[in-house]
Design a protein around this nucleic acid. Structure first.
Lengths: 290, 290
DNA sequence: AGAATTGTGTTACAAAAAGAACAGAAGCCG
DNA sequence: CGGCTTCTGTTCTTTTTGTAACACAATTCT
């Protein structure tokens, strides 16, 4: 007896399309901390979602309840049922999937990776790395390998908005030596290298090192050989129940770096973002007439 | 501050001796199905416990609350906190960094995103999606936009190893219409589209849809307009303390999909991997002699 | 671009709930 | 056993809360 009565949360999601803008906004607010927010007074819920009270009343009726009180009553019933259920579905991420489902196994592993990785990071290293990456007086080179290339590109795309003088190098390409021509002492290399470590990447790192560039390395728990040359090294746990490795933790670090350097150079970022938007707009206009 | 504030349940139990008969009766009724019953109207609670309404009001004041509404508010807060803490017990992820450090703030947000996202995924949808993506009889097209392009590429790189007939399309490129020439009914499109949703992506989706292709969409919590055309839609929470959005959750899903379809087609994957290794080796040999 | 439709917030009203005051019941002392 | 204290339920008032009606805003369609 899996009692798979659709929960109110399910119902909201299913009707999401049929809802209007304000109602959707409200719906998300409800799901945000479900079910607690739905159990408060209507007005509070409305305020939290930045919609008017009647919107709440209307949506609730759209969902098939007679009124807000009835909605709350069913929410409480649901909560009661859930509390009664002795099944500890608390260690399950995707509710409704057995705990052995790949969704749950994989997520478990990734969360674990994150915890381990973050636990080993020295905040000072991190801040120092952000200082280097965000420093507009140093040219920034971002290097990725075959798979890590995606991480490199992700960082590149964002760094490009935040600051000038950013270059993205694919170590797998034959053309990378060209990029090294202009490297000066004090320039910064962000290098991604996970197993299986790539020879090209190591060569590139050596050259950069010789030229006196600072090297920040993102690697895995076993550490790329590049780490001997690196000034700062972040190693992520990347093991997951799969034939491949996970880049999720690395991405988390990259995104955090982005957030940090964006804060650090906020004035500049804002300006550059606006100019970028302008240019996009112009592109669109241009397209219109073609 | 490990916030080991005693829960209201604790408070009730501790005060149990100081309560009178009717109040104790009520207290037990509250604990019976905690916290659901306490979140309903006062009168209901009174009736369920076979006491009068003022008894409820009095007891609640004895527990130190100003009135019943305040009691309820705190109950809701407690519920909210509880829902947040299935694993996020970690006040700080990066030990040694203050909890306000961007490393901790960001990680918190991402874990939260993961939790929300996974909680809303229908495992059947997920399995269905994997079935389609892994089906070697259907051509697979992977589409990304400006930023999501990195996700698309990540999936592409792995899918390519697992199966044949995989194509990676950048919706930002002008050349995408060419790729649609050979699309047949039953082919599969995996489309990534986060805000700000891209018009090109929508157009592309429309064409694919017209041709009778199956569409699997990875989008954010507000859902790209493509979702009207999608057969299966996964929406990730992507909000983080940054001017940009987080792709970490999306990546987690993508990696899980990869793990799933790799299991599904293990024999094939193994074969292809070996052949790929061979080819890499040959490349290396070739280089050796140049 | 204008008209019709749909969605949304403000106001006003009705219902309901919580709190206060009171009166009756039960237990506890002399 | 009667008077006192403590507890409990009923009634009434005040406040809060939900809902309905309206008018304005946004959107869509023609």
């Amino acid at each position: 007896m899996p009692e798979n009565q659709p929960t109110i949360s399910d119902r909201i999601q299913r009707e999401l399309d049929r809802l209007t803008r304000a109602e959707r906004q409200l719906a998300h607010s409800i799901l945000e901390n479900y079910p607690a927010s739905g159990l408060g007074p209507l007005a509070t819920l409305a305020k939290d979602a930045n919609v008017s009270a009647p919107t709440v009343a209307r949506m609730v009726q759209k969902l098939g309840f007679k009124g807000y009180p009835e909605f709350q009553t069913e929410l409480r019933e649901e909560l009661k049922a859930k509390a009664k259920n002795p099944i500890a579905k608390h260690d399950t991420w995707a509710e409704g999937a057995p705990s052995g489902h790949v969704l749950n196994r994989f997520t478990d592993a990734v969360i674990d990776n994150i915890r381990h990785t973050l636990g080993q990071i020295d905040p000072d290293d991190f801040d120092a790395a952000c200082g280097l990456i965000g420093d507009p007086d140093r040219a920034l080179y971002i290097v990725g390998g075959r798979i890590t290339h995606t991480m490199a590109e992700y960082l590149f795309l964002h760094a490009q908005v935040i600051r000038a003088a950013v270059t993205h190098i694919q170590s797998t390409s034959n053309t990378w030596p060209h990029y090294l021509l202009d490297v000066k002492e004090g320039d910064v290399f962000v290098i991604f290298d996970n197993r299986r470590y790539e020879n090209n990447t190591l060569k590139l790192a050596e050259m950069a090192h010789t030229k006196g560039a600072k090297i920040i390395l993102f690697t895995d728990q076993w550490r790329s050989p590049v780490h001997h040359l690196a000034d700062i090294c972040f190693s992520s746990r990347i093991v997951v129940p799969s034939a491949w490795d996970s880049a999720a933790t690395t991405l988390l670090l990259v995104e955090t770096v982005i957030a940090a350097i964006q804060d650090q150079n906020w004035a500049q970022t804002k300006d550059r973002t606006e100019r970028l938007e302008d240019m996009f707009d112009q592109t669109k206009l241009f397209r219109k007439f073609t």
